[in-house]
Simulated assay, not measured.
Amino acid sequence: MRYLLDAMLGTLPTYLRLCGHDTVYALDRDVEADEAVLGLAAEEERTLVTRDGRLAARADDAVLLRERDTEPQLRELAAAGVELTPAPEPVHCGRCNGRLVRDDAADSDTRPAYVPDDADPVWRCLDCDQRFWKGSHWERMVATLADVRDTSGETATDG
């Protein structure tokens, strides 16, 4: 799926990208005004995700969130049918949404100093050159998503 998250949802893009969703954050594109957000969503055929009810009502396709915090917002997305299972391998850059490729360089001199020596595999963003690996940050996000799916599943079946 292709999503556009408005300025109120700055933490969610990374989670959606981890799940393989092509996700644009409005402020990363210097878009904040309602008309510009709606135009970008229409132009790029993206589902708008917002906390603004009036904005959601004006969009061709939107998911309206009510919660302010990330985990409850993720539960709302799950309830709206958004798949929140992490991709086996990352596809989209967590920072900019660019495409990722495996960085198979065996020579540690080609990797930035922030990449641990034992990180393998490592992915590189073709747009911003950021490197990613499945470290503790990845594990925390995966655990959060698992908790959200478990909690959302219980809510759906108890209901």
Score class of each variant (00 low, 15 high):
V101I: 06
V101F: 01
D103F: 12
A105K: 00
A105T: 04
A105E: 10
A105R: 08
A105D: 09
D107L: 12
D107K: 05
S108H: 08
S108T: 11
D109F: 07
D109R: 13
D109Y: 05
R111F: 15
R111E: 03
R111G: 05
R111A: 12
P112E: 05
P112V: 10
Y114Q: 09
Y114P: 03
V115I: 13
V115H: 01
V115S: 00
V115Q: 00
P116R: 03
P116C: 04
D117L: 09
D117F: 04
D117A: 15
D117K: 08
D118R: 10
D118M: 09
A119L: 05
D120K: 11
P121L: 05
P121W: 07
W123L: 12
W123T: 07
W123G: 01
W123Y: 14
R124V: 07
R124T: 08
C125P: 02
L126M: 14
L126G: 06
D127L: 15
D127G: 10
D127Y: 10
D127N: 14
C128L: 15
C128M: 14
C128D: 15
D129W: 13
D129G: 04
D129Q: 12
Q130T: 04
Q130L: 01
Q130V: 03
R131W: 05
R131Y: 08
F132Y: 10
F132Q: 03
F132G: 00
W133Y: 09
K134V: 11
K134A: 11
G135W: 13
G135L: 09
H137N: 13
H137F: 06
W138P: 01
W138F: 15
E139S: 15
E139M: 05
E139G: 12
R140I: 06
M141Q: 06
M141S: 02
V142P: 00
V142T: 13
A143C: 08
T144G: 03
T144I: 12
T144W: 03
L145M: 15
